[in-house]
Design a protein around this nucleic acid. Structure first.
Lengths: 83, 83
DNA sequence: TCGCGATATACACCACAGCGTATATTTACA
DNA sequence: TGTAAATATACGCTGTGGTGTATATCGCGA
């Protein structure tokens, strides 16, 4: 089930949760994503909003991906199109 | 149905498609997102990877949102967890 | 085809994310 | 409790994305 991600904070939380689920340290994830441990730290705590490609790299390293969906309809939004 | 968004280019395409569906110009979208028309242009053409909060602002203006889901399982990924 | 709205580009400037390096500080476990 | 691993911070530097202003180019309807 896809997690909602409207803010950098929510994104950071999801990344951290998934990383721990994989049993990886921040350094592990950093190495796989081609980043520094410190960068993972700032992303997870959402200290500063990251760059899009940085987040995409982290998600890829975690075997995750973004999806884009209509907001107002909730998760089970399967409505064909928003007019 | 949620669109997959693994690259800045895919994200730009989805944003453009949704904007046109709304019947908005780049200037319209820019105004609603607190950005410039030129910025919308570079995002849609994926000329340069944007910042995360910029993309989030554009998505919000379009009443869209990110979701985060496992990559390898396709869209109907409802599997409990990928630990 | 003409003209105007829509989109793409240009240039100087500023803000800031991520880097390298390094060190606090916290957490977990023997 | 002590200590090593894991995480959070620090500092100067660099690359670059977004801004303001402005213009060039494209596309489409009359």
């Amino acid at each position: 089930m896809a997690d909602l991600a409207r803010t950098p904070r929510q994104i950071g939380t999801i990344i951290q949760r998934t990383r721990k689920k994989r049993g990886w340290t921040q350094s592990d994830l950093a190495a796989r994503a081609g980043l520094r441990q410190a960068t993972i730290s700032t992303i997870e705590t959402a200290e500063t909003p990251a760059k899009l490609d940085t987040i995409l790299a982290v998600l890829a390293a975690l075997d995750l991906e973004f999806q884009i969906a209509p907001r107002s309809l909730g998760d089970n939004a399967d409505i064909e199109d928003l007019f």
